[in-house]
Simulated scan of single mutants.
Amino acid sequence: MVKIYLGPAGVPLSSKKRSTIDGIRTVKELGLNAMEVEFVQGVKMKPEAAEEAGKVAEELGVRLSVHAPYFINLCSDDKEKVKASKARILDTADRAERMKADAIAIHIAFYGKMSPEECYQQVKSELGEVVDTARSQGIKNVKFGVETMAKESAFGTIDEVISISKEVKGVIPYIDWAHTFARQDGKINYGEIIDRLQKELNLTHINSHFESLVFRNGKYVDEHLPIDNEAPPFRPLAEELLKRENLSITLICESPELERDALKMKKVLEELGYKFS
């Protein structure tokens, strides 16, 4: 049966203290078992703090992942911005390795003046260098997750993230289900995506985000809403996951309701027969 790791993007709203360690403890108290550590405004955590957070998470059985800063664009026409982007990815990976997180989520690039194919080739080259550098620095276990993106100007269709993961060792798709739903004009076939990840990449673990999105001017846009908005719906994903064998998944709730919506997702899974250990 599938193994599910479920929790919030960042420190839970109900956590009395706002530190990562207190967030991990609150996650455990809530009956959840995953947390994504948010470096979206920059990597400000000291190496020793990352190691301490990793120890606490390991003791409590909370699976960690990490979100890299938003200020990353490997397809910028400014070489200094590309260089700074690569440094931010490496800093994120270093802290993730120290806290024994399994993967980092990266908003990798915007097409800008490039065609999608030109941007793809640049991402492949620059990200390949980042992974090689990381491995040479002793960052051995962290996977580099290229996130699926909602904006049509961004690198991150489901095809792009699967393809880049085939070509660059150490890179995986980081599936944002709502972003993919938006990129596909408000349609998503969960089973088809899971099948592709298992068959084309032999993935046994999927890293993912879940939330709902705003509908404006005839399309879904990358503004997050509580999951009750059902854009996309969660229950069909839950049903699809529970059909699977030899698979595990991290579901990080990126709704503004964070742990409240993560607990709603947990309830749906339990109603369908899943038991959180």
Rank of each mutant, 00 (worst) to 15 (best):
I4S: 10
Y5L: 11
G10V: 05
T20I: 15
I21T: 06
G23T: 03
V27N: 08
M35S: 04
M35E: 00
V37M: 10
E48Y: 12
A49S: 12
E52D: 12
A53V: 10
V56Q: 12
E58Q: 12
E59D: 15
L64N: 08
L64W: 00
L64Y: 05
A68E: 08
Y70W: 13
I72P: 05
K79G: 04
V82S: 04
K83Q: 06
K86M: 15
T92W: 01
R95W: 01
E97Q: 08
R98V: 01
A105R: 11
H107L: 09
G112W: 01
S115D: 13
Q121P: 05
Q122Y: 01
S125C: 01
S125I: 05
T133Q: 04
K140V: 13
N141D: 14
K143E: 09
V146M: 11
E152C: 00
A154K: 07
A154T: 07
F155D: 06
V171I: 11
I172G: 08
D176R: 00
W177N: 03
T180M: 11
A182T: 10
G186M: 01
N189F: 12
I193S: 02
I194W: 04
L197T: 05
Q198P: 05
H205I: 12
S212F: 09
F215K: 13
K219N: 13
E223A: 09
H224L: 07
I227Y: 04
E230P: 01
E230R: 08
F234R: 00
R235F: 05
E239H: 00
L241F: 04
L242F: 08
K243Y: 01
N246K: 14
S248W: 06
E254K: 03
E257H: 07
L258A: 14
L258Q: 13
L258M: 14
R260V: 07
R260L: 10
D261K: 02
D261P: 02
K266W: 07
E271A: 12
